[in-house]
Structure formats: C-alpha cells, structure tokens
Amino acid sequence: MSDPLDPVDDLTEVPLGDATLSRLRDVGPVDAVVRSRHIEEATRHLDGAVTTATTYVRFRRLSIAAVMLLVVVGVGVLVTSRRQDGTNVAATATERRAADAAGAASAVPKADDAEGATTEGAAAMPPVKSESAPMTLPSTESTAPPDAGRDAQGRQAGAALGSFDNDDQAREAALRRYEEHRDELTTHDSSQPVACPLPPGLGTPIEWSTAVVAGTPRLVMVVRTADATVRALVADPRVCVWS
C-alpha cells in the first residue's frame, strides 16, 4: 500500500498560472510593530538560552579551577611534608654520625664485660646475612685457625638468630636462639663475629662486642694495628663495613 503523502504516480510537473502564482505569493506585509515585537521576543529567548549556557560554562570553569586549586594545594602540602621529612632524616643522620663517632671512641669494651656486651648486643642486632660474610678470615695470632665446618656451623647459627628489629618478642626470641647457638657462634674464633669478620689489613682482632649507639646496634671490635697500637673499630652489622 502506497503512502498517501508519497504517491508514486504523480511525478509530473503541474504548473500554476501567473495569476495564481501572484495571488499565492501575495502574503501582504506585516505590521512593523508586530514584526519588531516578534523579533524582540525571540531575542529574549536567546538571552535565556545563553544565560543557561553561560551559567553552565562558568560553573564548569569554576569546577575545573577548584579541582586544579585542590591539586596544586595537595601537591604543595605533599612536597612540603616530604621536605620536612627529609630535613628530619638528615638531622637524624647527622646526629647519628656524631653519636657513632662519640660512641665508637668510648665503646672499647672491657675484657670482663665482653661476654655480657656481646649477649646484649646480639639481641639488638638486625639479621646478618651469612652469605655476604667473607669466608676468608684475617690472619690472626690468636685462637685456633678457622675451620670450614665450623664456619658453616657458625653461619647457620647466625642465620638462626633471625630478625631482631626493635620488637620485644623478637628480641627475646633472638636472645633465646643466641643462647642456644652461642657456642657455635663463638667457639671457632671468639675474637671476631663469624657473620661479620674483619677484612685483612685493618689489624688483628683482639676481641669484639656489640653496642647500641644512638639507638642503632653496632659491632665494636678492638684490634691491634700493624704499628702495634690498639684501636676500636665500629661496623654496621647490616653491611659489615668496619671503620
């Protein structure tokens, strides 16, 4: 069924006469007042539309500006906070270095309390990776020569100490384990820690102990240097660098 508005059989041009066309086109003028009123009324609707659009655009711009401001403020606060943290860390590090130096000078252990200091210090020591410890012990004029089997045993004992951290329970557990493995740690060479031996060239170990310097566990070792003077060396047990 064909669409009554779109008949397919009426595609031929049907002309209108001039008179009819003329009458059709004669719509007459519009009153000037009416015309003016129509246009004025219509332009008022543009105002409304534009006002709405402008309000929306302004709101959107304000929203974007507010978000950007928040981001900038947030980043600023973050940066300031980090800077303050960095200052604190730097200050702490400086204090620690000063305290280390002071502590090292006064931390030359006495022979009669070496064992106690060792016990206390071991409890405060962080885990020391025995794999990183050099296998070669420095030449020494004291105690028995190192034994490979004992070294391995010592490393196992060191590893058994586990993580010390500052947690009380962990500290107690570490102390217990230390007590259990104490012989294995110290029997083969009591002059220096098995897990953190003294590299060659720094002197001959006399005895070692642990100490907490400025809240940080340190290994302290008394050595006799090549010119026969006695010095105290300090090392961070985590990196085993003696100085």
Binding site: L5, D6, P7, V8, D10, L11, T12, E13, V14, P15, L16, G17, D18, A19, T20, L21, R23, L24
Partner: peptide, 23 residues
Amino acid sequence: SRIARGRRVLRTQLGDAGNSNGR
C-alpha cells in the same frame, strides 16, 4: 509528487487552468 498534487488541488479550487507563462 507533493508539489504536483498540491498544485492540482489549487488549480481545481482556484479555477486555474494554468498557462504557458507559468512554470
């Protein structure tokens, strides 16, 4: 089609037989 049919109605209503001076 719409123009043709519309014009046809107008011609009938207005008694316009069309002329050669038209479209």
